[in-house]
């Protein structure tokens, strides 16, 4: 009960103080909206094209909405030492990290709704397997957030957090089959795609919207779960080493 109160307080504060602040909301909305529009305009409104682009745009919105936000907020709180408050609270590091990441995850999931809403005006989404969409988005949000956590633990300055996030996520846009089919990637760099969780999340979304992906969904679920758990465990381990040193 006490832990639940602490968890909720941390999540609510982050939502209020960071994620739902106007500049961030506008970034969270403008970014997916402009990418969506750009791609949709390029496809000249051909219905199949829009549906084909939707999974990639969603995956990218989630990726960009989560990774740097978490890395930046944690680095910011560490700089201002308010992060110490959280480390002094009688909750374990695992719960603290879950609370800190829940805000970013929620924000990422909300971000993914923007392209869906836009697309729903332009194409018929009735054939979509929504039961796959939600967990897939959730997994993408979790793995991207934990990637952000991993970055936050590794840096000490806000600008480093930003740079480091971009270092990961821009290549991911190309490597994870978001807009470029995995099969079109040169064979030498294709192995990289398979060690990035976004590849699996994106493929699941393609199954859900288009009924066709290149990977076996069962494999994708397992890989996503593994990556999520692994990134979280690594972040916790590193956090113990670098924050309580």
């Amino acid at each position: 009960m006490k832990a639940a109160i602490a968890f909720w307080a941390i999540l609510a504060k982050d939502m209020r103080n960071y994620y739902l602040k106007p500049p961030n909301i506008s970034w969270g909305i403008i970014f997916p909206v402009s990418w969506t529009l750009m791609f949709f305009l390029r496809s000249r409104g051909a219905p199949m094209d829009i549906k084909d682009l939707l999974p990639g745009v969603m995956a990218m919105s989630v990726l960009f909405g989560t990774t740097s936000m978490l890395a930046v907020t944690i680095t910011f709180e560490k700089r201002h030492r308010s992060f110490e408050r959280l480390l002094l609270a009688p909750i374990g590091l695992n719960l603290l990290m879950l609370a800190k990441t829940s805000g970013a995850i929620t924000f990422g999931v909300i971000n993914s709704a923007v392209p869906i809403v836009l697309a729903s005006f332009l194409v018929d989404l009735s054939g979509t397997t929504w039961l796959t969409v939600l967990p897939a988005v959730l997994f993408i949000a979790m793995s991207s957030t934990f990637l952000g956590l991993f970055i936050a633990v590794s840096v000490s300055e806000v600008f480093e957090a930003q740079t480091f996030s971009n270092f990961f996520r821009f290549p991911m846009v190309f490597l994870c089959g978001l807009f470029l089919p995995l099969g079109d990637l040169p064979a030498v760099i294709r192995p990289l795609s398979y060690v990035l969780p976004l590849t699996y999340g994106n493929d699941l979304l393609r199954h859900a919207f288009l009924g066709a992906g290149v990977l076996n969904p069962a494999v994708s679920w397992v890989m996503l779960a593994l990556f999520t758990a692994l990134l979280f465990a690594m972040s916790i381990r590193n956090a113990k080493r670098s924050w309580i040193s």
Partner: peptide
């Protein structure tokens, strides 16, 4: 050195800290 949240008011800071302890 004080480590409360600069953007939150005094009352909000105290309530937040209280919540961290499960009150």
């Amino acid at each position: 050195e004080s480590n409360l949240y600069g953007e939150m008011d005094g009352f909000g800071n105290l309530c937040f800290c209280a919540a961290l302890y499960g009150l």
